[in-house]
Design a protein around this nucleic acid. Sequence first.
DNA 1: ACAACATACAACTGATTGGTTGTATGTTGG
DNA 2: CCAACATACAACCAATCAGTTGTATGTTGT
Lengths: 122, 122
Amino acid sequence: MDGTREDRADAMFHALADRTRRDILRRVLAGEHSVSALAASYDMSFAAVQKHVAVLERAGLLTKRRSGREQLASGDVEAVRSVTSMLAELEDIWRGRIDRIDTFLQGDRPCPSPPSPPTPTP
Amino acid sequence: MDGTREDRADAMFHALADRTRRDILRRVLAGEHSVSALAASYDMSFAAVQKHVAVLERAGLLTKRRSGREQLASGDVEAVRSVTSMLAELEDIWRGRIDRIDTFLQGDRPCPSPPSPPTPTP
DNA sequence: ACAACATACAACTGATTGGTTGTATGTTGG
DNA sequence: CCAACATACAACCAATCAGTTGTATGTTGT
């Protein structure tokens, strides 16, 4: 049993499930920002913003790079794309349902239950 | 001040940030399932699964339809697509950064700070 | 050197979450 | 009718979360 794939999905969707973090992600996708520059934009403590940045970093959506005494955060668009591809998988599953209905209406084969994903029982 | 847009995003990403819920979503995107049929697939109580279904429903990722004594759940692919489009917005912002660098390298105009999204301070 | 800045991290709090059990309400097949 | 089924919902619990304050550590400009 692996789980690292699903763990990554957990971390990414969780990171995106907070509007402050989504806003931070927008800023760092637009360009590098130091943590304190980010913190200045929000009506909360520096430590709170720092934690949000850490959540985004753990999820891989953001990377940090030292520059003197500042820590410059930058959004990782590849990580965003990997989330998009997870959603694309969901769409594919849905498309599979339609295809199954099509073949059924054509009297083709008796609905051969699609290649269901690992079907974990957590 | 609205917030409903961001509220929807909160609900959707939160709903997706749990592997059991993602698994349920896969199943109901593939085809209708009653809540008890879903519950039978997981090693947790019926009530727990029922709550997961409710979270997905509140996020709009799933709709329920009564059929006799059963409640049939079906995945809403349009909602999945709306999440995809939120991610596409993020990618666009990133693309904007690249474009700005391009125009800068062309000595075009002095980086006219992109049309930053509402920039809320939560 | 040192004061101001940028960051990191620990400890605490209230709210939310994911899970449980128990109970109540409809629905159906025989 | 009624027993078995499908769902709903409340109350509770442990864990996690989002925020706070406080303290420690490294960096820089003068």
